Simulated scan of single mutants.
Amino acid sequence: MTSPLSLAVIGGGQLARMMQQAAIGLGVHIRLLAEAPDVSAAQVIPDHFVGDYTDIDDLRRAAEGSSVVTFDHEHVPPEHLRTLAAEGHMPRPGPGALIHAQDKITLRTRLDELAVPSPRWAVVASVDEVVAFGLPCVLKTPRGGYDGKGVWVVRSESDAAEALAGDAVLAEELVDFRRELSAQVARRPAGETVTYPVVESRQENGVCKEVIAPAPDLADELSQQAQQIAIEVAEALDVTGMLAVEMFETDDGRLLVNEFAMRPHNTGHWSIDGAATSQFENHLRGVLDLPLGPSTPSAAWSVMYNVLGGAIDDLEGQVGVVLAAVPEAHIHLYGKSVKAGRKVGHLTVTGDDLETVLARARQAGALLQDGSPIG
């Protein structure tokens, strides 16, 4: 017998770990398909087993007893998702939506059909085609890239040859942008949507380093446009749960859609401590078709700082040091071993003055990551 508040989650990373935090309060039971016994989410979700998300039998085992299946990542084969749906275990988002997060060429084609503003792009198969498209440009592998992986900035023919050897077949214009923004929307099958404040994300070596919510000095019309793009995409693609739309804001005041994710996203982690309803709770509400919660900010400003693997190996032992210096910091560790550049946690600081909040978040982050304050 299936339970209306039972959910299968595929993938055992930190997103699934934080879904469990929201699930506890809602009384939602999660069964987890994990990649290994010690991955981030398996440490906190009792009902888990180790399996392969490309194996339909493992997916069936995870879905047993649940009418809904959702994801920590977007890599489950579409044919398996269709099989689960036919057997009464509805993937949310469904395969027709998720393919746009799995395949960048499919995404770009659909965004053009929807007249969503995006960078100029083309499918390329040779260095000559890259040159014809125009240098400099960005080359991407259509599937599987994340956190800067599978992405090459190409300025010469030799750069293009190297990227094509790495399976890049999608060329995009190298956008001269002012900053990167992210617009998030939660949506349930009944059609209800809730948008979150548009945020600014700041990158370091291709990895999101910090997020400011809301994006400072963002014109009201651009904020509304970004949120409307997110709603239109969610509705057109029939997304359920959370959708994050990452965009470039150009110097001449345009928005261009870069990529998106159909799940909770790094740019929404601030909402755990900075919004009335976190992105993780609204993702669970959305996929289970429960009424969505308000996204109202709980403070004027929230800054989320990603903690990457650095000089501190014993993160848990460093927590007291951080809280002694910045007691208002909200720390979230992912239970991961420390490796250079690896996302091992994040923290959030909220408050009324942006400069103060930003400085305090950076201070706490530097102490947790490297054991010393910035500067």
Score class of each variant (00 low, 15 high):
residue 232 E to N: 14
residue 117 P to E: 14
residue 111 L to P: 06
residue 264 P to H: 12
residue 317 G to K: 06
residue 342 R to A: 05
residue 217 D to L: 12
residue 329 A to G: 00
residue 2 T to C: 13
residue 137 C to Q: 00
residue 121 W to L: 07
residue 199 V to K: 07
residue 113 E to A: 13
residue 316 E to D: 15
residue 276 A to S: 12
residue 216 P to W: 13
residue 33 L to Y: 10
residue 26 L to M: 13
residue 191 G to R: 03
residue 187 R to Q: 09
residue 72 D to K: 09
residue 321 V to C: 15
residue 269 H to G: 10
residue 194 V to I: 09
residue 218 L to C: 08
residue 334 Y to L: 11
residue 21 Q to H: 15
residue 296 T to G: 11
residue 366 A to G: 10
residue 35 E to N: 12
residue 158 S to H: 14
residue 323 L to Y: 05
residue 44 V to I: 06
residue 178 R to G: 13
residue 133 F to L: 00
residue 163 A to F: 09
residue 163 A to W: 10
residue 239 V to T: 04
residue 133 F to P: 01
residue 38 D to P: 13
residue 293 G to Y: 11
residue 248 F to R: 08
residue 349 V to Y: 00
residue 254 R to W: 08
residue 59 L to M: 05
residue 225 Q to P: 11
residue 150 G to M: 06
residue 142 P to R: 05
residue 100 H to S: 01
residue 364 A to S: 06
residue 195 T to G: 08
residue 297 P to L: 06
residue 303 V to F: 13
residue 68 V to R: 05
residue 1 M to Y: 15
residue 135 L to G: 06
residue 304 M to N: 13
residue 196 Y to K: 07
residue 28 V to F: 00
residue 24 I to N: 10
residue 140 K to R: 08
residue 262 M to L: 14
residue 197 P to T: 02
residue 190 A to L: 09
